[in-house]
Computed example of a mutant assay.
Amino acid sequence: MALAFAGTAAGIVIWPAYLAGVPDNTGMGVVCGPDGRGYRDVPAYGGLPPHPIIVQAVPPARLPSDAAPAWQWHDIRDTGVLQLAACVRLLSDTPSGEFCSYTRGLPQVAEQQEVRTARYEITVFELRTHRVIDRQEMVGDHDACPEYKLADKAVYTGLSDAQLHAALDRHVDRPG
């Protein structure tokens, strides 16, 4: 967490450095980054549900293509109502023994890419204070081959929409 310092007659006062305003689709890097910070102008996590949440995958992690639309930036109309942020990080991976087939180049060349079984960490933060609400690990069970892959990039099992719901619904649907 980033800290701000101020000198006083009594000594040094330390408090978390929060960002003004509300996040946008570029601001989640600040929330999910190594020096994560909260946004002081968003509502506190509390009161009756629902508790709006945004989910951000930290590369190379990805959200499933069928992820709930309410968790994606393009479907959030007012980021000023967000109370929670969930950051998804890849922790480790192992060979799965399964392969995906791709073609590349001209002339097209067939290529096999082994799918790697991925273990993810999902950390839920109160967006206002950057306080950790929950942290859990899950092994991705979504093993469908992506439609395409970037050159020299691994292919990982992903978290399914059902896994995201299992991890996050209890925070969205219960009183804070």
Results as ranks from 00 to 15, higher is better:
residue 100 C to T: 02
residue 19 L to P: 01
residue 34 P to K: 10
residue 10 A to H: 12
residue 42 V to G: 03
residue 155 V to W: 12
residue 81 V to Y: 09
residue 67 A to L: 07
residue 5 F to K: 05
residue 147 E to K: 11
residue 134 D to P: 02
residue 154 A to S: 09
residue 39 Y to W: 10
residue 51 H to T: 06
residue 165 H to V: 13
residue 95 P to N: 11
residue 137 E to C: 06
residue 15 W to Q: 15
residue 64 P to E: 03
residue 89 R to W: 13
residue 44 A to C: 03
residue 69 P to N: 00
residue 7 G to V: 05
residue 152 D to T: 07
residue 49 P to C: 08
residue 157 T to A: 09
residue 161 D to N: 15
residue 129 T to W: 10
residue 152 D to S: 15
residue 67 A to G: 01
residue 151 A to H: 01
residue 40 R to H: 02
residue 156 Y to H: 05
residue 102 Y to M: 08
residue 91 L to R: 14
residue 42 V to E: 08
residue 29 G to C: 01
residue 117 T to H: 14
residue 142 H to K: 05
residue 4 A to P: 04
residue 94 T to N: 09
residue 158 G to F: 03
residue 62 R to K: 13
residue 19 L to H: 05
residue 111 E to T: 04
residue 56 Q to M: 15
residue 14 I to M: 10
residue 121 E to H: 06
residue 98 E to F: 10
residue 33 G to P: 04
residue 108 Q to S: 15
residue 132 V to S: 12
residue 172 V to F: 15
residue 42 V to L: 06
residue 11 G to A: 12
residue 34 P to Y: 08
residue 63 L to V: 08
residue 11 G to H: 00
residue 28 M to G: 14
residue 39 Y to F: 04
residue 148 Y to H: 05
residue 131 R to T: 14
residue 160 S to V: 06
residue 130 H to D: 00
residue 100 C to H: 00
residue 125 F to K: 05
residue 165 H to R: 15
residue 154 A to D: 12
residue 92 S to A: 11
residue 87 C to E: 14
residue 51 H to R: 11
residue 39 Y to T: 06
residue 139 V to C: 00
residue 175 P to A: 08
residue 174 R to Q: 08
residue 119 R to Y: 03
residue 39 Y to I: 01
residue 153 K to D: 13
residue 40 R to Y: 05
residue 118 A to L: 00
residue 136 Q to M: 09
residue 54 I to G: 06
residue 152 D to R: 09
residue 51 H to P: 09
residue 151 A to P: 09
residue 52 P to A: 07
residue 140 G to Q: 03
